[in-house]
Design a protein around this nucleic acid. Structure first.
Length: 189
DNA sequence: CCGCTGATAATCT
DNA sequence: GATTATCAGCGGA
């Protein structure tokens, strides 16, 4: 990724990650949906300061913060932003690499459902807590830039605090989102 | 298409 | 002891 990419303000980073391609051991796709979280944000895991779980959020930008949610699923974040304790949740991918591998891990064949949610994409890519705190700049991860795309914004999903903040970003009109965005709010690339 | 519900356990208070 | 950045399956329109 370009110099300074991960240390731009976290809202800019969340939007900049849209269209980039993320793979793990060659399996993955184009990022089509993200959400931003930061230390001053009541909905963020980092809001109450460093803990054993959110340790990676206070570490260097460009690393992974991975946690388990509801005791069942894994969620992947890209640590970054211009101040400590911020990260971008990767919510959905458009599958492009290793479709067969994803189908085997997910136990389904529907391409649209392989990575259309934060827990789904971690299952499809084989992401677990073993990769928490790992850099995104080296194997098994690969994160590469993409073409700028028109984006949409809206409130984040599944939270109860700061629920009105429009800190969710997505590719306009994508069929691979975890859920549709409230219309109409397309923004140019 | 939409909304509801149970599963399931780490984390934090 | 309550909460949780979720998902699959179900039933109904």
């Amino acid at each position: 990724m370009p110099p300074g990419f991960y240390t731009q303000p976290v809202l800019d980073l969340a939007r900049a990650l849209i269209g980039c391609t993320l793979t793990i051991e060659g399996v993955g796709g184009m990022i089509v949906e993200t959400e931003a979280y930061h230390a001053g944000d009541p909905a963020s895991h980092s809001h109450a300061g460093p803990t054993s779980r959110n340790r990676a959020m206070w570490g260097p930008a460009g690393y992974a913060y991975i946690y388990r949610i509801y005791g069942i699923h894994w969620c992947l974040n890209v640590v970054g932003g211009d101040e400590p304790g911020a990260a971008v949740l990767i919510r959905a991918l458009q599958p492009t690499h290793g479709l067969d591998r994803m189908r085997a891990r997910r136990g389904i064949t529907d391409e649209r459902a392989l990575c259309s949610g934060p827990g789904k994409l971690c299952q499809a890519l084989g992401i677990t807590g073993a990769l928490d705190g790992h850099t995104l700049a080296a194997a098994p991860f690969a994160l590469t830039p993409g073409e700028p795309l028109p984006t949409v914004t809206g409130p984040r999903i599944g939270i109860s605090k700061a629920a009105d903040e429009p800190w969710r970003f997505g590719v306009a009109g994508s069929r691979f989102l975890s859920r549709p965005f409230p219309p109409p709010n397309v923004q140019p690339a």
